[in-house]
Write a protein that binds this DNA or RNA. Structure first.
Length: 441
DNA sequence: CTAGGGATATTG
DNA sequence: CAATATCCCTAG
């Protein structure tokens, strides 16, 4: 397939929530082969489908289909099926059954139909094909659910448990895990490289934005503008979704799969900033200066719109020499959503030029700004989701692996986890440490 | 990244 | 309410 085709497909699949383009339809339309790249595209599209259905709040038998497809794809990539995928499948299957347990009377036929359809046929088929999705947990659910038809006590207990919540938690965990393993898309890598360069320049130019841990409105605007500026003309979609997703995936503590591209970029960024710190003036050529100036003007304009109190501070003549970061906005990022993953986008009116009549802006002609989507997730510091992970008891297998690990590596939790990624797939290093703490007590 | 304190949930 | 297990936060 042509490289450009691939890029476009990659962009459509990974970067947008676009209900008009169903990733799976797109893929079948393009007739991808089975090369590594194409597999990655397919996995991406399935992840996007999963994520979309989660956003819609639907955990149904379609979700089971997706999980099964994902398993097949991962097997082709010869990846391991993680615990979170098994659990996600198991709890989703339970949730699909649970919805037929709504009537108090188990004998109305709906439940038995569901059991037959989901557990006997679908999962029976998985068992025959030796699928990795068939876990002990799944088998236990099967027994319990089938027992529930005749055992009112069991029926009641299952009905009252919060299966949906657990299913969604595991699905989210799976998404994070897999997105982390996926890494940046090729388009994304190029975009990030350019964006980081621009951002570094912009920061150096201001006087002290760098090293400030707390994100503020200006920083975020910078990101948006820089992103907008570098990307405009090559694509029309919003880039922020993509960035958010990547931050989500990579920031997940359970992920060891931070891709090389990102590490490389991070290293590159530090390098660039370090060198520019000493001689930033000379390292910026004329074109860059112009671009930086334009960016700075946008920022000043936006900041006036956002915070009227800064208006008199601005001096249009030497704005170039001033820090953009005059009045840091209180940081309100993250923590507002419930899932910390997908969020509602709101229009950024502050950047609309139409409302600039009140500003003291000098009247220079500027290209019109598109309306960037605000970042709901701080790019600087990814905090954890407000939702607590579901409590999961340690299996004897895990405990054994931990004991062996400590014997071999001592208290290097990270090494222990890396030595046995399959067993500790859903434990963080901190979990290992905590568990050891209470083992030796 | 690790250690340690603390929050939260469960059990008796 | 105390004991216990797990998860979360943060200083160093």
């Amino acid at each position: 397939m042509e490289i450009i085709d691939k890029w476009v497909a990659e962009f459509l699949i990974r970067c947008q929530h676009n209900p008009r383009v169903s990733p799976t339809n797109l893929l079948s339309a393009l007739r991808f082969g089975d090369s590594g790249d194409c597999l990655k595209l397919k996995v991406s599209s399935v992840l996007l489908d999963l994520s979309d259905s989660l956003t819609r709040g639907s955990v149904d038998e379609g979700t089971l289909d997706l999980l099964e497809i994902l398993e097949k794809l991962l097997l082709q990539k010869s990846s391991v099926i993680t615990e979170s995928q098994k659990s996600a499948y198991c709890w989703t299957a339970a949730e699909c059954t649970l919805r037929f347990m709504w009537p108090l009377d188990p004998l109305d036929g709906l439940l038995t139909d569901a059991l037959e359809r989901i557990w006997t046929k679908r999962i029976g088929f998985l068992k025959e094909s030796g699928s990795g999705l068939v876990s002990d947990e799944l088998l236990k659910w099967e027994t319990d659910l089938k027992k529930a038809v005749e055992d009112p006590e069991m029926y009641q207990r299952i009905r009252e448990s919060n299966i949906r919540y657990t299913a969604i938690s595991f699905l989210n965990q799976l998404l994070k895990e897999q997105r982390g393993l996926l890494g940046s898309s090729s388009l994304e890598s190029v975009a990030q490289r350019r964006f980081r360069k621009r951002k570094a320049e912009n920061n150096v130019e201001g006087d002290g934005v760098r090293g400030n841990e707390v994100p503020n409105a200006v920083d975020e605007s910078t990101r948006r503008l820089a992103s907008d500026n570098t990307e405009r003309g090559t694509c029309e979609g919003d880039n922020e979704n993509r960035n958010n997703r990547d931050v989500d995936g990579v920031g997940c503590p359970e992920n060891d799969g931070i891709d090389k591209v990102n590490e490389q970029l991070a290293a590159e960024e530090e390098g660039t900033m370090g060198s520019q710190e000493q001689e930033h003036e000379s390292s910026l050529d004329k074109g860059d200066k112009m671009a930086a100036r334009e960016l700075k003007d946008y920022l000043l304009e936006i900041q006036r719109q956002i915070d009227p109190s800064t208006r008199q501070v601005q001096e249009p003549n030497n704005a170039f020499d001033h820090s953009v970061n005059v009045t840091p906005q209180p940081s309100k990022v993250n923590r507002t959503g419930t899932s910390g993953q997908d969020h509602i986008e709101t229009p950024d009116n502050a950047s609309e030029k139409g409302s600039s009549s009140q500003g003291t802006w000098s009247g220079r002609v500027r290209p019109r700004l598109s309306s960037p989507v605000p970042l709901n997730v701080s790019p600087l510091k990814k905090t954890n989701s407000p939702v607590r992970r579901p409590k999961k008891f340690w299996t004897p297998e895990e405990v054994e692996a931990l004991r062996a690990g400590v014997k071999e590596y001592g208290k290097s939790w990270k090494d222990i986890k890396n030595a046995n990624p399959a067993v500790f797939a859903e434990r963080t290093e901190v979990d290992l440490k905590d568990k050891w703490r209470n083992l030796v007590r």
